[in-house]
């Protein structure tokens, strides 16, 4: 394999390079997390610190032609969190801003 300048050869490398950085994680059940990534494994089990969870609770309203129900957003913070890999949809590295 040719070691490219970015050091990314396989998908997990993207997560490896995000260690100790704030990542965005999308989970099953309309949940999202941001937190500082400290550990992961091949199952995508994660350990995050300073994690903030956002839960989207969609409340379908009848009689609304736009098909737009109200979306309630619940947030909560957790100091140190283990996330089981089977619930993970995607892990996104921090935006470089």
């Amino acid at each position: 394999m040719d070691p490219s300048s970015t050091g990314i050869q396989e998908p997990f490398d993207l997560i490896r390079l995000s260690l100790s950085e704030r990542v965005f994680v999308k989970l099953r059940g309309d949940r999202e997390l941001t937190g500082i990534l400290h550990a992961y494994d091949g199952h995508m089990n994660l350990i995050l610190s300073d994690a903030e969870e956002t839960i989207m609770i969609v409340d379908p309203v009848d009689g609304n032609f736009e098909g737009q129900g109200t979306v309630k957003v619940a947030k909560r913070k957790m100091e140190m969190l283990f996330v089981r890999g089977d619930g993970v949809i995607l892990v996104s590295p921090p935006s470089r801003t």
């Binding site: 969190l81 283990f82 996330v83 089981r84």
Partner: peptide, 8 residues
């Protein structure tokens, strides 16, 4: 299990 909150 979904999450485990650990003692930081």
């Amino acid at each position: 299990v979904r999450y485990v909150q650990l003692p930081a």
